[in-house]
């Protein structure tokens, strides 16, 4: 990964905007921002962003690759789509944020110990297993993502909710034994694998371009 990162730095020296355009989901749109700031002001998580979207776009243009990719900002996105709805320039900001986050993670530059990164990864791993999300397992793995002791503490804190969910049959403890899933799990996993390969190849080829 870091090898890929070095190659990318080499290839796109001075032109992070181009790198984003080539390799980040919906990255081509970054150039269209006119710095009005409506996205930054519209974000419900606004106060927690070190750099709000519009500033990230400016940082991309100003070639601040490290700062952008190691930022925890993109991980604050709640996918509420306020920014997209209000952007006067049609930028799919939510997707660009997801794209930047994914790209940072892929290159190993994303901040360590960022809870959303972990949750997001756990979610993905969970769904990769059977093609559908197993909420109980996801929940439990979430509680234990920072180690056993903290996990027990968190799970204890959440026990009332868990109990409430169970009592209303909205959480099934038996799910731990298996749960829902697609029938053709191998095919499903192959499909995702193929998609991942194609995507990785695209990025690798951009280095060679």
């Amino acid at each position: 990964m870091s090898d890929l990162n070095t190659q990318l730095v080499e290839k796109y020296r001075n032109n992070f905007l181009q790198e984003v355009k080539d390799n980040v989901e919906e990255g081509d749109w970054v150039k269209m921002c006119m710095q009005c700031g409506v996205c930054s002001g519209s974000c419900p998580m606004g106060p927690y962003w070190d750099h709000p979207p519009q500033e990230i776009f400016m940082m991309i243009r100003a070639n601040k690759r490290e700062e952008v990719l190691s930022s925890n900002s993109m991980w604050m996105c709640t996918s509420c789509y306020n920014c997209i709805a209000r952007c006067p320039r049609e930028l799919p900001i939510t997707h660009i944020m997801h794209g930047l986050a994914h790209y940072a993670k892929r290159l190993g530059l994303a901040p360590k110990n960022q809870p959303t990164i972990k949750f997001s990864q756990l979610f993905w791993d969970n769904l990769m297993k059977k093609g559908r999300v197993n909420e109980l397992k996801l929940g439990l793995s979430l509680y234990f993502m920072n180690g056993f002791a903290e996990g027990v503490k968190k799970a204890w804190k959440m026990k009332d909710i868990g109990l409430g969910m169970t009592l209303t049959r909205r959480l099934n403890p038996l799910e731990i034994l298996g749960g829902h899933g697609v029938k053709d799990q191998t095919g499903f996993q192959n499909m995702i694998k193929k998609a991942q390969e194609l995507e990785a190849a695209r990025i690798e080829s951009s280095v060679k371009k």
Partner: peptide, 11 residues
């Protein structure tokens, strides 16, 4: 809209 950490655009 949370799978993006592990899953890229294409997957």
């Amino acid at each position: 809209s949370i799978g993006y950490s592990g899953g890229g655009e294409l997957p």
